[in-house]
Design a protein around this nucleic acid. Structure first.
Lengths: 207, 207
DNA sequence: CAGCGCCTCCCTCTTTCGGGGGACTCTGGT
DNA sequence: ACCAGAGTCCCCCGAAAGAGGGAGGCGCTG
């Protein structure tokens, strides 16, 4: 046991109390240890470079640089980095982005200690661990999510209460184009009107 | 020291990891101890009755019964219960409701260990601890937002993409009345249109 | 190079919103 | 007894939104 190398874990979360909780749980495990902590995405990247942890637990919503971008950055430098996303369920879009960014595991903060340590061990062993509820959500919306950058830009302004005409002026395009974008947004999200589209987008984490 | 009674704390949060973190922090303090945990509002109420803790740490968003209602229920039975709300910042409405429900403290999950133990000690001593950022948010939207139950009902359906006419049918009132409600909703939230109203309501935690 | 997705623009027509009024009940509190 | 707030209903009217088309350019990839 003492000769066996422990799993070195880096935790990245903007909630100190949660990091404390993770540390407390891992401290009770003989085969793992927290070697570093980060409160922002930028910090996470720096700490990853410095420590080269075996497993990284990464929150998606962090100040400075968000978790998704941090995962991208880390995996660009170290394509075999083992990263687990740790989050309260924020909508399927964030989940799917995290998976696409290269996360090997997805943990909900509501999960138990056992799930945490199981997932860490599994991911460290090179496996992937995506909970069923997330997988289902991904499958359900696999085809549709894809709003284009322009569409997101339009929807953002619409959510802010801007009329089509005003959005058109802001983006320096014609009102007709904005209406075209709105049509395709509502079709993609299966929304009955612009208000519904905004509701869906906010709940899914698109906006 | 050993003769001094310790502050008995109950934690209510649906995130086991966070409860673990709190427990870990309090374990390091000689004058406090976690005597119970709850994962839902209902559990929190039951545990409170059973344990009569000195201080209760309560999350606002929990399954079953939410934190605000749980605070109401507890303070109705024990008006001198000392309760601290613990949450990720969800918008000022939840904060103000929690304060009104009788919370003596408001803690953000992003806060440090020191803030946690300081607030617990202060609240246990009968003081109130509301962070400046929350106080400012409360002052800005001074008199709460004050959407009436009926208005929330209307806005909920509007958020779901229902036209005024349809909302009218669902609530068995005339379309004119729905329009009147929408006018007052938009005025209260200072929204430029229905879509903006929904955005604001979702971000503030009203919907 | 043909096709596809993205972005852009235009037209018509109907429905829906939203601003501006006013007005009637009922309730709870001063 | 009175007044404020909530909830209801009604009017007019201009502006916006949405459903229905069509259409062209541009960049990427098979």
């Amino acid at each position: 046991m003492s000769t066996m190398a422990r799993i070195r874990v880096l935790t990245a979360d903007d909630h100190p109390l949660l990091r404390e909780g993770i540390a407390a749980v891992l401290q009770g495990q003989p085969d793992m240890e927290v070697v570093g902590e980060a409160a922002t995405g930028r910090e996470a990247l720096l700490q990853f470079r410095r420590l080269a942890p075996d497993v990284t637990l990464m929150d998606v919503q962090m100040p400075d640089v968000n978790g998704i971008d941090a995962i991208h950055a880390i995996r660009q430098e170290s394509p075999d980095a083992r990263i687990i996303v740790l989050t309260t369920y924020e909508g399927d879009v964030l989940a799917s982005r995290a998976i696409k960014a290269g996360a090997a595991g997805y943990l909900l903060k509501g999960m138990l200690r056992k799930d945490l340590i199981d997932t860490i061990r599994a991911v460290h062993a090179g496996k992937r661990r995506i909970p069923a509820e997330i997988a289902v959500a991904l499958a359900q919306h696999h085809a549709d999510d894809g709003l284009t950058p322009r569409e997101v830009e339009v929807l953002n302004r619409v959510a802010a209460g801007h009329a089509n005409k005003r959005v058109a002026d802001e983006l320096a395009i014609s009102e007709e184009t904005v209406k075209t974008h709105m049509k395709s947004i509502m079709a993609k999200l299966a929304a009955s009107d612009r208000t519904h589209a905004v509701t869906i987008a906010l709940r899914r984490g698109i906006l």
